[in-house]
Nucleic acid binder design. Structure first.
Lengths: 128, 128
DNA sequence: CTGCGACCTGGAGCGCGCTCCAGGTCAAGC
DNA sequence: GCTTGACCTGGAGCGCGCTCCAGGTCGCAG
């Protein structure tokens, strides 16, 4: 069972965001209500980590900060906003799908080039 | 049969790069020996378009400009550099593969969230 | 001969997403 | 009591990859 309370350094390590980025995200409103201890230092909870994990998925799949901001505003809005959050994620999912498809197509071209160079270097190594 | 000679505007349209980007690429050395007509305007050939297509694949799969520069230096080096070009592309291909795999994993998480919201909104629409 | 529009150049500016810095606070260890 | 080190703040700076701008040239249509 985890401790359910994490220092900035631990949170950075677990979330994959740097401490600076965590502070930045709090500043711009991607992270809200991060607890503080008596001396004003941030104390992250398991919920915060779960939220950071979600942010990581969104960023990692190319969602711009502005849209993540929209999503976190919705998340603060409670159950009223489930439908909107759903639509936002579905739109994003579609873009991710397109992104992967485009990568595959371009990767295929690159692999054709690789095959070409393999032929070329094979010729050099064992000519005629 | 194509005309095999293209204005900057045509080239931009066909390659998907903006005219400004084409100029920028020439300036930094990603494009070399672009022909000029009598009045100093760029004239792109089918070879140039093929090269731009390759650049598009590389950029589109996330290769940084610095590495594309390395690749174009090698390309200028002739047959001597096939082996190096091959290795560069193979390394990149591996990174693209990892990138796609990472996208898939994160997409899966997002889809779990989508499923969750779908349950939630289903409940709201038809409660109890 | 004039106007227009596509093009040229060098260089400044921009948007994004962090990343770094100076100067300060606090708690624990020696 | 003093040092150390993790943390705090507001704000400046940065790297990347373009994108835009001012001022100029050229060739063709009217």
């Amino acid at each position: 069972m985890g401790v359910s309370s994490y220092s900035p350094a631990e949170t950075a390590e677990k979330s994959g965001f740097s401490i600076d980025t965590l502070r930045y995200y709090e500043k711009i409103g991607l992270l809200s209500d991060i607890a503080r201890n008596a001396s004003g230092r941030r104390v992250f909870s398991d919920d915060d980590l779960a939220w950071l994990h979600m942010l990581r998925c969104l960023r990692g799949t190319g969602m711009p900060i502005a849209e993540m901001l929209r999503y976190s505003e919705l998340a603060r809005g409670g159950g009223e906003t489930f439908q909107e959050r759903l639509e936002l994620l579905q739109d994003h999912d579609r873009r991710v799908e397109e992104q992967i498809a485009a990568l595959r197509v371009q990767q295929e071209q690159i692999r054709m080039k690789i095959a070409y160079y393999q032929d070329m270097t094979a010729c050099e190594i064992a000519p005629v």
